[in-house]
């Protein structure tokens, strides 16, 4: 239970943003996170009584972009600022996954979130998260033509 919205954001804001960026890319995801936080601030009296306000706000953010048409190439396709390089087809392949698979794979394997925390942000069970990751990785391997070594 959080007393103030500020405390809640201190502890959970990054996870919320990570989830929405993983699902919708940096531009749309950040905007969705802003919408969700604005909603959270407006409705904090109600949200603070919830068991999982982060998951609730993730769904608020998800709803705010659900009906939008996502442009192609909403995930970054190449490194920025001399960051480590990666396969150019990775971003398009991630965009080819379902939203659930994409957000699960990116949160856990690209952003390094532990399964339990990712499941809380997405408001789903760990087993559901695992299923999405497994399916997403399988599809990525097919799309990118890479073999599995350690899954």
């Amino acid at each position: 239970m959080y007393v103030t919205f500020e405390t809640f954001i201190e502890n959970n804001g990054a996870q919320l943003r990570a989830g929405l960026v993983a699902a919708f890319g940096p531009n749309i995801g950040v905007e969705a996170a802003a919408d969700a936080m604005a909603y959270g601030w407006e409705n904090w009296d109600r949200l603070k009584k919830m068991k999982n306000p982060t998951g609730y706000l993730y769904r608020v953010g998800q709803t705010s972009v659900r009906r939008q048409t996502k442009p192609q190439g909403y995930l970054p396709a190449k490194p920025v600022n001399d960051g480590p390089s990666f396969e150019p087809q990775l971003a398009p392949s991630l965009e080819g996954l379902t939203e659930s698979q994409r957000v699960a794979v990116v949160l856990v394997h690209a952003l390094g979130w532990p399964l339990g925390e990712a499941a809380v942000v997405l408001d789903i069970s760990v087993s559901s998260l695992r299923a999405h990751i497994q399916r997403g990785l399988e599809k990525l391997r097919v799309a990118l033509k890479v073999d599995a070594h350690d899954i």
Binding site: L75, P76, P79, G83, P84, F86, V106, A110, G112
Partner: peptide
């Protein structure tokens, strides 16, 4: 490895 690099870019 690609996913981790992608995460950094993201």
């Amino acid at each position: 490895k690609d996913l981790e690099a992608f995460g950094e870019t993201l």
